[in-house]
Write a protein that binds this DNA or RNA. Structure first.
Ligand SMILES: [Mn+2]
Ligand SMILES: [Mn+2]
Ligand SMILES: [Zn+2]
Ligand SMILES: [Zn+2]
Lengths: 140, 140
DNA sequence: TTGCTAATGCAACTCGTTCGCAATTGCGAT
DNA sequence: ATCGCAATTGCGAACGAGTTGCATTAGCAA
């Protein structure tokens, strides 16, 4: 018995069909221990469903992103995008240049950027992307 | 008489040659009123130097970026990169979703992120990329 | 002025992602 | 349960940004 099924809910809400490829892509992304590329997602999906095409993985990810289920992050410009379950903007990314690890960090800093721009400069902030690159405690 | 020529200085310092394509690319980027794609740079370069190839534009930009003269910013994931004269991290980007304009904003917020991560979490911060998307005062 | 090597133009290539289309399949209506 | 049809899929071809190999050109130190 699945008590909470955000995929099914989101698909029904917007009138999309529940399909095997979508289920499989969501299961992979939502249980992944790190950000994955479309290729990596396809590989994991194919362990259970060998016939799922890479195009369908891309199409699922694009749809999920519109539904607010996943987030695409282009950690390196050039090179494939990485995907992860959606999380709020103020949980930002820390990437270690040496070991490649990507951590998350939550703080009030993103909220402060928002407030400052709104109050002092009349900007309506919709999205804040913050990526910090450097050396993690292990690699420093 | 050119009083300050960062291009010539940077090239000589690292033992690279001063060439017409490099000069032209630098002139375009350093006087542009906004971030430009490689294609846009090539078009402007060709107004004066019709034979400069797009490959050379890419090669110049890559070199300039290593020399610390320009900065590549991937404002949209997917789609071409944009280039601009180098500026410090704490001068971050504000992009208007409606009119497309990209503003710069300087504040101590990026510095605070740096300090916090270093002091409290042992991360050595090397680079901070901050992109705020929303509505500018004119479009809000 | 010469000679050597870096840099260029050009075309072919890579690679992540998208697209067109015929075949399949989910699912509401019967 | 079955049907019908639009939504979705698999597949291969296409796309676009960026890169690369190579023969030719040109900067610059001697
Ligand atoms: Mn994340
Ligand atoms: Mn900028
Ligand atoms: Zn590390
Ligand atoms: Zn605007």
């Amino acid at each position: 018995m699945i008590i909470d099924d955000p995929l099914r809910e989101a698909l029904e809400r917007e009138g999309h069909r529940m399909t095997a490829p979508r289920r499989a892509v969501w299961d992979v992304v939502s249980t992944a221990e790190r950000h994955l590329t479309a290729d990596e997602i396809a590989a994991r999906v194919r362990a259970e469903h060998p016939d799922v095409n890479l195009s369908s993985v891309y199409r699922s990810l694009t749809l999920f992103s519109e539904l607010g289920l996943v987030r695409e992050s282009s950690l390196d410009s050039g090179g494939p995008a990485h995907w992860e379950p959606a999380h709020p903007d103020d949980e930002f990314h820390l990437r270690c240049r040496r070991c490649g690890k990507v951590d998350h960090h939550t703080g009030d800093l993103v909220g402060r950027v928002r407030e400052h721009l709104e109050a002092e400069h009349g900007w309506v902030t919709e999205q804040v992307e913050l990526l910090v690159t450097g050396l993690c405690p292990d690699c420093a």
